[in-house]
Amino acid sequence: MQSMSRATIFVSVGILALSLLLGGCDKKKAPTPPAGPPEVAVLTVQPQSVTLTTELSGRTSPWQVAEVRPQVAGIIQKRLFTEGAEVKAGQVLFQIDPASYQAALASARAMLARAEANLLPAQLRAGRYQELLESRAISQQDHDDAQAAVKQAEAEVAAARAAVENARINMQYTSIAAPISGRIGRSSVTAGALVTANQDAALATIQQLDPIFVDVSRSSSEILQLKRQLAAKTLQTDAAGAARVKLVLEDGTPYPLAGTLKFSEVSVDPGTGSVTLRTLFPNPEQLLLPGMFVRAVLEEGNNAQALLVPQRAVTRSPVGKPMVFVVGAEEKVEARTIKVLRTVDDNWLVEEGLNPGDRVILEGIQRARPGTVVKTVPFGAPAAAEEKK
């Protein structure tokens, strides 16, 4: 009896489970709403005025530089300047022992006095001979000899005066003066050193640092591109046509004063293919020192109709050309090949391939391929921001 009860229970449970299963299959599944087009964030391209700049590495060089060398030989008696200080043109820097040059000057003056003393009797004799010649008391030869003696005495006087002037100049050269104003460096000699005229080693170097040059290099291809843009009037300069230059120091801080582009080299360096540009900066505080590494920012001009696209929107085609995805007619995605000129901050400056009003996709392109219909929202809108999160 117990066996029959268990069998009856098992059959009842099976029937119940089967009825529940068949009832569940009879229920209809709720329909899924159709998915809408993918949403993308777009940026509408509009022309804008952009100041085009180029950052180039360069080094500073002094406005003027002069190496101080002796022009006469002698012993240095004393140094008359402080190393690293400012000196003025004509300021005495070194003093050479002048004793021998003083003696030479005195000797030259004595020779001049003797020559002038010999000239006077020669002139008197020539005058008397002129009177005697008129009365036929002397021969023509005696008269000519007297005139020649006067000329010779005058020549000796002139030579003596030149010797005096030369001795005076050498005497003056014993005081070695600064040829230019500027900051003087360290001295290569001390008191007691023997120096010679026009020696190879300079006694000191003077550099004028206000203003100061900054020399930078630019490739010849970039120079040609800049000239083409100016010819096509896509770039605008000021009335004087001069380019303004800004400076960034080694530590990344901007230099407070602006400079100007002075000239570019007239030839291209065949080794590097670059052209040297020389810029000039005021340096009243002498913050810039010769040989310092800096970065010059050249303001090439202004493009009033520039089309800028964020770099994040630009990809590369299979052949390596830059391209963007835009939303075209009927809200469909299009791949557009573009031509870019350069970077401007975090944007690309587009030369060809885009027109004002084009909508460039910045976010959501992974969900929309060319030909796909999409829903657009402005880049940075709340919906796009939430989706990005």
Score class of each variant (00 low, 15 high):
T196K: 12
A41T: 04
Q130A: 11
P33E: 06
Q91T: 00
Q123E: 11
E116M: 07
I176Q: 01
L56I: 01
V268M: 03
L287Q: 15
L261S: 06
K233N: 13
A242E: 15
S317Q: 07
V87C: 07
V50S: 06
R228M: 09
N355L: 13
A240Y: 10
T260K: 14
A162F: 08
Y173I: 03
A313V: 04
E300A: 02
D142C: 02
T60Y: 04
V266Y: 15
S3G: 13
A73D: 07
P98W: 03
F263L: 12
P31M: 07
I338D: 00
A231W: 05
E131L: 10
V327K: 02
N283R: 03
V245E: 05
V340T: 14
V189W: 05
E334N: 09
A201V: 10
Q123D: 11
C25P: 14
F281A: 03
L349S: 05
A384H: 03
I223G: 06
K375L: 08
P382E: 08
A231Y: 12
A158V: 07
A158C: 04
V377L: 06
V245W: 06
T44F: 08
P370T: 00
L194D: 11
L289P: 08
A335S: 13
A149T: 05
S317T: 06
M4V: 15
Y101Q: 07
A153N: 04
E386G: 09
G241N: 00
R168A: 13
T234E: 13
A35M: 11
V377K: 10
E222Q: 13
V360G: 04
V42K: 06
V266H: 15
R114W: 13
L307G: 05
L230D: 05
V11G: 14
K78N: 12
V150R: 06
P37D: 05
A296P: 02
V333C: 01
A103D: 14
E300C: 01
Q305K: 13
V350D: 00
V214T: 07
R114G: 13
P370Q: 01
V333W: 00
W63G: 05
N198H: 07
F213Y: 08
A383Q: 11
I176T: 06
L209W: 02
A73T: 02
R228L: 15
R79C: 07
P62N: 03
V42F: 02
K88R: 15
P121F: 05
E285G: 08
S19M: 15
Q172T: 10
E386Y: 08
E387G: 14
E334F: 09
S57T: 06
S3C: 12
P290S: 00
M1Q: 14
A313M: 04
V65F: 12
G58M: 02
S61T: 07
D358Y: 03
G241W: 05
I169N: 12
D145W: 09
G273M: 06
P290C: 01
S12V: 09
K332Q: 12
L133W: 08
A191D: 04
A197R: 03
